[in-house]
Design a binder for these strands. Structure first.
Lengths: 153, 153
DNA sequence: TATTGTTATACTCTATAACTATA
DNA sequence: TATAGTTATAGAGTATAACAATA
């Protein structure tokens, strides 16, 4: 039999999963409206914060295969967000670089992120945001430990 | 300039997104280990909780196209989790039904969910789980309101 | 006429493996 | 020999549109 505490934990997990799904859908829709997908936006985000990067570095940063990055960059080039520039010292490599439009879009994403943070977390009862952050930090740590245990390599 | 509060809100959003990603990856891996994908597991979950369903009902419940359900059911049939049974009163429709293996698997998923809830949320400092649930509930509500505003249809 | 599910087609994300050009 | 990126191939999830069978 499930105790009240066990039921509360399951409710908490459900809530977290639901929120997860809602946020993903929300972001995917906003991105689609400006011609981006989540995966392509993730790549754009890297370029905004780290400047032009080789596809290899991007593949490692996004933790996907090199082949996948080729596809993502193909899409972003076709839609005008980035260009492939020659690497100045390694003729095998390309530097994926934001176009003016790509930079504007990435800046807009950063702004939208700040606005969403405000809309979700502003004006919470005193101390509640602290409590949530503390709680989620603990939970994230526990999840990380579970994953380490599950993959003992 | 960002105030300390604005920075804290962004940190909270980052934390939530990170947790989201970690949980998704964690679940996808666990599912892959038993021959399921997230989308197929979602369908299985419906069958566990609601019993045999037509594909139309499943499409509405999962909020995807009917075509997509055809594909998901095809995959689940091939891998032995479900069968297509004739609908007793509507010869156009099929009732997607769990096999014995599918039911065992779905039961295992429910158990795993309970265990994950325990591992993530058990033994938190007094009141912290309450605070997290309260905070996340508020945030989920705000997100829902944002989505309604964004899609005034 | 309307609905259920399929076939046809297409796009995106993802992967591995073989290959080319360069280091 | 090793690395960067592409071509080839494949599977999964998603969509719309046209169609067959049935309601």
């Amino acid at each position: 039999m499930a105790t009240a505490q066990q039921r509360q934990r399951i409710a908490a997990l459900d809530l977290l999963l639901e929120l997860t799904v809602s946020m993903s859908e929300d972001m995917a829709e906003s991105l689609a409206a400006i011609g981006l997908t989540p995966a392509r936006a993730h790549l754009l985000w890297q370029l905004l914060h780290r400047g032009p990067q080789t596809q290899r570095v991007l593949a490692d940063a996004l933790r996907v295969s090199g082949r996948n990055v080729t596809g993502l960059v193909d899409g972003l080039v076709q839609t005008g967000f980035v260009t492939r520039e020659p690497h100045p010292r390694d003729r095998r490599a390309t530097l994926v670089t934001l176009t003016a439009h790509g930079r504007r879009t990435a800046d807009d994403l950063a702004t939208a992120q700040r606005e969403l943070a405000d809309q979700l977390f502003a004006r919470l009862p005193a101390g509640q945001l602290d409590a949530v952050v503390e709680g989620l930090t603990t939970v994230a740590g526990r999840l990380r430990r579970l994953q380490v245990e599950a993959a003992p390599r």
